[in-house]
Design a protein around this nucleic acid. Sequence first.
DNA 1: CCAAAACATGACGTTTACGTCATGTTTTTT
DNA 2: AAAAAACATGACGTAAACGTCATGTTTTGG
Lengths: 128, 128
Amino acid sequence: MERMRIGELTERAGVTQRTVRYYESIGLLPSGEREGNGHHYYTEETVTRLRKIDQLKKLGLSLEEIRDVIELYFTDPSGVQPKRKVLGLLRRHLADTDEKLEALRQFHAELQSHIERFERWLEVKDRE
Amino acid sequence: MERMRIGELTERAGVTQRTVRYYESIGLLPSGEREGNGHHYYTEETVTRLRKIDQLKKLGLSLEEIRDVIELYFTDPSGVQPKRKVLGLLRRHLADTDEKLEALRQFHAELQSHIERFERWLEVKDRE
DNA sequence: CCAAAACATGACGTTTACGTCATGTTTTTT
DNA sequence: AAAAAACATGACGTAAACGTCATGTTTTGG
């Protein structure tokens, strides 16, 4: 229950094989392969990593930006060199996330009120 | 202090002329022109509109999605033609937004706990 | 009034993030 | 062991969202 090949990986992570290959090609995913045969083998962490990449994408980061920070999400404090710098970066991401959450909530509210206005308008029309 | 041409418009809205032209070409912005000469003229509302578009882009909406909803910010229901269709679109956008919100919340939580791990690690170090 | 700046339009180019064959090898199923 | 399924690699294609000339017209500052 550790090593899997690309088929299982993509199914569990909800991405296509092409996506994985592409991420490997741009250095966003380590291309853990080699077993004599040409096949790549992946672990549970690769799944987590792909999911994290997806989250960061939804935050609006480009793959290049993600490549610059993804490591931070997979190293533990004891293994990182400029710890305070990393912490600073993480905090900025958190702040960005806060802002985006707020903006999204507002958009959500706006959408809802637009919808309600429409519904009221249609209700009136229906009664005629 | 009402009509302006594209130079002023783009400066005030913080976008390029090409962007405006592109938006006009895909029906995202009304191309308010005509004055005998070939020049396009815009108003304060166009500036607001461009800014709103930028906000929505930052939320991760595509220009197509934005085109579906942008009118709602500038007209009332009675002015929208296929009302039931628009209502359906709005509901889909609302559902999408719900999902995005949920993903962001989860990311936020994970990021926070990651940060806390870092902070605890540094605290310990500081006491040494 | 005339040169410089601003504008209009068209066409081709570019980047990101993959999709979609095509072809050959490896694994799995029967 | 043979056919089917999965995998590897390469190459070409694509959609979104503009960027960047090129060329011609209109406006404006001196």
